[in-house]
Design a protein around this nucleic acid. Structure first.
Lengths: 136, 136
DNA sequence: TATTGTTATACTCTATAACTATA
DNA sequence: TATAGTTATAGAGTATAACAATA
């Protein structure tokens, strides 16, 4: 049989396609970024580290999110080079909506597994991810 | 905790990065395509269906593989519009080498799981993939 | 001079549509 | 006219490097 990595790639492509911007209300990466802001604002410079994005990409993603009104960038008064990035109320709502969409996509993608199997899968997956260096 | 799809995306990105053209000897997609030819030649027109590629992309991939001498395209004498695509001896060798590389990447990516857990994970993953429509 | 954020650029991927040759 | 394959083209996505403002 084909190896796990190929299977992983296949399943992920499928999942990724389902999570289109139309259905999710934002790009998957934007969703990932917003998750980092859920607990509170953070300096823009820290976002790339969380997500394994480069600084450039972060700027482009933030431009997109800001144009939708989902985040705000504010100058840090203590160091005027820095931006503090915060999620807005609209962003919080969009994030909650995207959470629900992602949960239903998850149910679809893993429909062929029993709830116990899904839990097992998720647990093993989480452990494999935790052992890896961060990536988007 | 974050949902399974996000975890899936993270792990896959990581795995995908490791499987660079340098280390694998070919692109991941080329590897997937060659796997379809392992058992024997097939008409070019059937490859997109196997891999969820469009016809255009298939041509580009085959150009790449042919320039490396890994596949051959032969006109079908019965219908001169058609190409029969076959793996060459060099392609078979490159495929075997890539198989070994993929196996070792798999071991790395899932190093934090026990062999039994890896087997469980692969089994669940294979079932989730099998239930989905085909994708590259 | 170093750092934060931005812009510019280029390179790869992917998707669409037009074209050639065979049927 | 329809089909198999190809080529051309444009649009994302991603990565690199140059640039401006501030420290």
């Amino acid at each position: 049989m084909t190896n796990s990595i190929l299977l992983l790639i296949q399943l992920t492509r499928n999942a990724y396609r389902r999570a289109s911007e139309d259905v999710l209300g934002m790009k998957v990466k934007a969703y990932m970024l917003l998750q980092n802001l859920r607990e509170g604002a953070m300096p823009q410079a820290e976002l790339p580290g969380c997500m394994h994005l480069d600084a450039n990409n972060t700027v482009l993603l933030l431009n997109d999110l800001e144009s939708k009104g989902f985040v705000e960038r504010r100058r840090d008064p203590a160091d005027r080079r820095r931006h503090i990035v915060a999620i807005t109320e609209a962003g919080t709502k969009a994030l909650a909506r995207a959470d629900r969409v992602m949960a239903s996509l998850e149910a679809e993608v893993f429909a062929s597994l029993s709830p116990e199997e899904q839990a097992t899968f998720r647990d093993l997956l989480a452990r494999a991810v935790a052992a890896e260096p961060a990536a988007v």
